[in-house]
Amino acid sequence: MSHDYLSETPLLDHENPAIQELIAQRGWAALSESERIGAAYDFVRNEVLFGYNSDDSLPASQVLADGYGQCNTKGTLLMALLRALGIPCRFRGFTIDKGLQRGVVPELVYPLAPRNIIHSWVEVQHRGEWLELEGFILDQGVLTALQAAFPDRNSLCAYGAGTDCLQAPNVAWSGKSTYIQKTGINRDFGVFDSPDAFYADHRQLTRFRGLVYRLIIRHWMNRRVARLRAGRVPTIPGGENNLVPAKSISMQKEAE
């Protein structure tokens, strides 16, 4: 099977004028390979805020226009920027336990959320190896608020975070893999050339539930994220038991 990790696709629309203009304005094309990866990564991590778009399968140019995104949509934008900068990259698909979204999904509708939620990260080819990039999902404002709210915790699986090192997570680009939701992962779909290839077979929140999500629930979630970013972290029913990583929850159930 041949792979093309640099081509444009309908979702990775890196020839879009807005994406090309961003790259030109920032002068990213003149940077070294590591600096190009870091510039695109830092932009997506902090200048594209953590939030919920209307759909996972949005073109990168639409995510850029929205100015916010979550794992899947921010990943699409990062991939488009990397390919536009001549950096080979690919898509890795997963699901995460919905417990990772506790505190962001309103409690009124949390029981209706799918048990397993579509998740992804970006794999980038750098210096002869594939690195896993996931640490771009939460912007620094959200991460700082969580660190302040849970100063004595390192393991957290809620509020959009899934990490065993909350106070010092590996989220900054330094030429190595980065993570912020890894401990919530409960299924691995493998590697895909593009998000287009993944979403052709894996979709979520379609039909009526998808409509309700797009028109009502995601806006509710985005308001909760904005309050979280401002330091008003909502309380989760069940307390400490609902803040442990999803894998630990599964292990506990098996032990019972």
Results as ranks from 00 to 15, higher is better:
Ile180Met: 05
Gln125Glu: 14
Asp4Lys: 10
Ser174Phe: 01
Gly93Cys: 07
Phe50Pro: 06
Thr144Asp: 15
His3Asn: 14
Val124His: 06
Val171Met: 06
Ala30Gln: 10
Ser57Arg: 14
Gly128Leu: 02
Val244His: 03
Gly141Ile: 08
Asp13Trp: 12
Ser174Pro: 05
Arg92Met: 09
Gln25Trp: 05
Leu58Phe: 05
Phe198Cys: 12
Asn46Asp: 15
Arg187Val: 02
Ala255Tyr: 12
Leu64His: 04
Met221Glu: 01
Ser250Val: 08
Gln147Tyr: 08
Met79Phe: 01
Tyr5Phe: 15
Asp13Pro: 06
Ser194Trp: 02
Ser2Met: 12
Gly38Tyr: 00
Phe198Pro: 04
Ile216Cys: 14
Leu64Ser: 02
Phe94Lys: 00
Gly67Pro: 02
Ile249Gln: 02
Tyr110Arg: 07
Leu211His: 11
Pro234Thr: 01
Glu107Ser: 14
Tyr199Ala: 12
Thr235Trp: 04
Leu85Glu: 04
Ala226Lys: 07
Leu156Thr: 07
Ala113Leu: 06
Val212Met: 14
Gln70Gly: 11
Thr9Pro: 08
Gly135Val: 06
Tyr199Cys: 12
Ala255Arg: 07
Leu100Phe: 04
Glu132Val: 09
Leu82Val: 01
Arg209Phe: 08
Lys176Gln: 12
Val171Thr: 10
Ser57Glu: 08
Met79Trp: 03
Glu15Gln: 13
Asp164Val: 08
Pro237Thr: 03
Ala29Lys: 03
Ser54Cys: 08
Leu77Met: 12
His3Arg: 15
Arg45Cys: 00
Leu146Met: 15
Phe150Ile: 06
Phe43Asp: 06
Leu108Met: 13
Ala246Ser: 13
Gln62Asp: 11
Val109Cys: 05
Val48Thr: 10
Leu81Asp: 05
Val225Trp: 01
Phe198Gly: 09
Gly239Phe: 09
Thr144Leu: 12
Leu81Gly: 03
Gln204Lys: 01
Pro17Cys: 07
Ile118Thr: 10
Leu133Ala: 13
Ala18Arg: 14
Ala40Ser: 05
Asn154Cys: 07
Val124Leu: 08
Trp220Glu: 13
Lys176Arg: 13
Ser57Lys: 11
Gly75Ala: 03
